[in-house]
Design a protein around this nucleic acid. Structure first.
Length: 391
RNA sequence: GGCCCCAUCGUCUAUCGGUUAGGACAACAGGUUUUCAAUCUGUGAAGCCGGGUUCGACUCCCGGUGGGGUCACCA
C-alpha cells in the first residue's frame, strides 16, 4: 500500500439519516477499515437556511447506533476562513470572478472532463454544456461544489465513495480541483437504493429515519448486514455476516452497478437470523420488547370469523371449545388437559386467535398470562359473539 | 427535453465466452393435529428487443427500447 486510504461521509443536515445515507457511510467505513485507513465525518451545512441542528443530531445518532465510528469529524460552518482564502485566491488568479449579480462565478474553461470511476469505468462530460456556475454567494458564503473540493483536498481524501446521484456533479468538482491545483481523488459512485417503484428514495416512499429501525426493534447488526447486501455481495452464498466478516470480505469490485429496491421482508429475515445467533436470555429480552408493540397489546384484536376455527374444525365445535375454555380459565382449570382430549389445535388455535387476532404470535398460555384473566375472558367472549353472529 | 448512469426470477443477486442459468427473500403447496412456528420439506418463477463478433454468447461490440439520476445563489 503506497498511500493511506482516506474516505469521508459527507451528509447535509437538511434531513434525517436514511437507509441510503447509512449505506453510503457503511461502504466508506468498510473500505476504510479493510485497508486500515482514516474515515472522516463531514457535516455539509453551508446552507444555513436548510441545515438544522436536529438533523445533525439524528445523523450522528444513526451512525453511532450502527457502530460506524469515524476517526475525525468537522463541520463546514466552522471553516469559513479556509474557504475565504481559496475564494480570494481564485479571484486573484482569474479562475473566478464577481458577477454583476453579486455572486462569485467560476470561469469555466469549457473543456472535456474524463474521469475513471472505480465501479463504472471511464465517464466523459463536455463541460461546455455548463455555464459559469456559482461557487459562492460571497467571500463568506461558499456553496456546495467549492466547499466539497476544498475539504476533500485539505483532508487529503483519496477515495470519494458516494451515491450515483453525484456523477453529474463530478465534472464541476474536477474543474474546481484543477483551478486550485488539488489532486484528483478516486471516484466510486455506488448505485442508489430505490423505492418499490424504482424511483429515488424520498420521504414520500418511506425514506424514514434510520433510527426508526432501532425504535422498531431491529438489531443494528441486522441493518448493517442487510444494507451491505444491497448492491454488494461476496460472490459466495453467504448472506449473514458480522461486521468483522464484512470488513474482511468487502471489495469495491463486487459492487453492483444498478440500483436496488429496499425490501423490508428480507430485512426482517436477516434480522431474524441475527436474533437466532444471540444467547437465549438476550432473545427473551427482544421477544418481550417486541410483544409490547404488538397490536393486541396496544388495542383490542380485530377478528376475522373465517380464521377463528382451526383448520377443518367446524364453527359449532369451535364455539363449544371456546365456551369450555372460558369456563376453565375462569376457574383456573387445566386448559391443556381439555385441549389434549379434543385435539390441541382445535382449542389452542381459536383461543390464541381470540386473544391476539394474529395468525402468528406467542403461544396462548403466554398471552393468557400477559393479558390476565379478566382481559382474556373478555376477548374470548368477544370471539364467541363474533362466531354466533356469523351463524 | 439536453447530458450522464443502468438493464438475469416479483425482490436482492451468482455467472467474469461453453452451467439442466445457481442461491436467498417473498409467493404458493404440503408436513409437524400449536408448550411453540422467529419451524421443516417441496413447487413455480429470469437473461428487455434487434443486429453483429465467435465453433459457441446472459457474458464482448453497435443500435433500439425501458428505467433511473441530474440539470439552483440545495446538497
Amino acid at each position: 500500500m503506497s498511500e493511506k486510504i482516506i474516505t469521508r461521509f459527507a451528509p447535509s443536515p437538511t434531513g434525517n439519516l436514511h437507509i441510503g445515507g447509512a449505506r453510503t457511510a457503511l461502504f466508506n467505513f468498510l473500505y476504510t477499515k479493510k485497508y486500515g485507513g482514516k474515515f472522516i465525518l463531514r457535516i455539509e451545512n453551508t446552507d444555513k437556511e436548510r441545515s438544522q441542528k436536529e438533523f445533525e443530531t439524528n445523523i450522528i445518532g444513526g451512525l453511532d447506533w450502527l457502530g460506524l465510528e469515524y476517526d475525525e469529524s468537522y463541520k463546514q460552518s466552522d471553516r469559513g476562513e479556509v474557504y475565504k482564502k481559496y475564494i480570494q485566491k481564485m479571484l486573484d488568479d482569474g479562475k473566478a470572478y464577481e458577477a454583476e449579480d453579486k455572486v462569485i462565478r467560476f470561469r469555466n474553461p469549457n473543456t472535456k472532463i474524463k474521469f475513471n470511476d472505480l465501479i463504472r469505468g471511464e465517464i466523459e462530460f463536455d463541460t461546455s454544456d455548463l455555464e459559469d456556475f456559482v461557487i459562492a454567494k460571497s467571500l463568506e458564503e461558499p456553496l456546495y461544489h467549492l466547499a466539497v473540493v476544498i475539504d476533500d483536498h485539505e483532508s487529503r481524501v483519496t477515495h470519494v465513495i458516494r451515491g450515483e446521484d453525484h456523477i453529474s456533479n463530478t465534472p464541476r468538482q474536477i474543474l474546481i480541483q484543477e483551478a486550485i491545483g488539488a489532486k484528483r481523488p478516486f471516484y466510486v459512485h455506488i448505485p442508489l437504493i430505490l423505492a418499490p417503484d424504482r424511483s429515488k428514495l424520498s420521504k414520500r416512499h418511506g425514506a424514514i429515519s434510520l433510527l426508526e429501525f432501532k425504535d422498531k426493534g431491529y438489531l443494528s447488526e441486522a441493518v448493517i448486514n442487510y444494507l451491505a447486501l444491497l448492491g454488494w455481495n461476496p460472490g459466495t452464498d453467504q448472506e449473514i455476516f458480522t461486521m468483522k466478516e464484512l470488513i474482511e470480505q468487502f471489495d469495491l469490485s463486487k459492487i453492483q452497478k444498478g440500483g436496488a429496491i429496499f425490501d423490508i421482508k428480507k430485512l426482517d429475515w436477516v434480522n431474524k437470523e441475527h436474533i437466532k445467533r444471540l444467547p437465549p436470555e438476550k432473545q427473551l429480552e427482544i421477544l418481550l420488547k417486541s410483544i409490547e408493540n404488538e397490536s393486541y397489546m396496544t388495542g383490542e384484536p380485530e377478528l376475522d370469523v373465517a380464521k377463528i376455527s382451526w383448520k377443518k374444525e367446524t364453527p359449532e365445535n369451535t364455539l363449544k371449545h371456546l365456551e369450555e375454555a372460558a369456563k376453565i380459565i375462569e376457574h383456573g382449570g387445566n386448559l391443556m388437559e381439555y385441549a389434549e382430549k379434543v385435539g390441541k389445535g382445535n382449542v389452542l388455535w381459536p383461543v390464541r386467535y381470540a386473544l391476539t387476532g394474529a395468525e402468528a404470535s406467542p403461544d396462548p398460555f403466554t398471552i393468557l398470562e400477559i393479558l390476565g384473566k379478566e382481559k382474556s375472558l373478555k376477548r374470548i367472549q368477544n370471539a364467541i359473539m363474533v362466531l354466533k353472529d356469523a351463524s
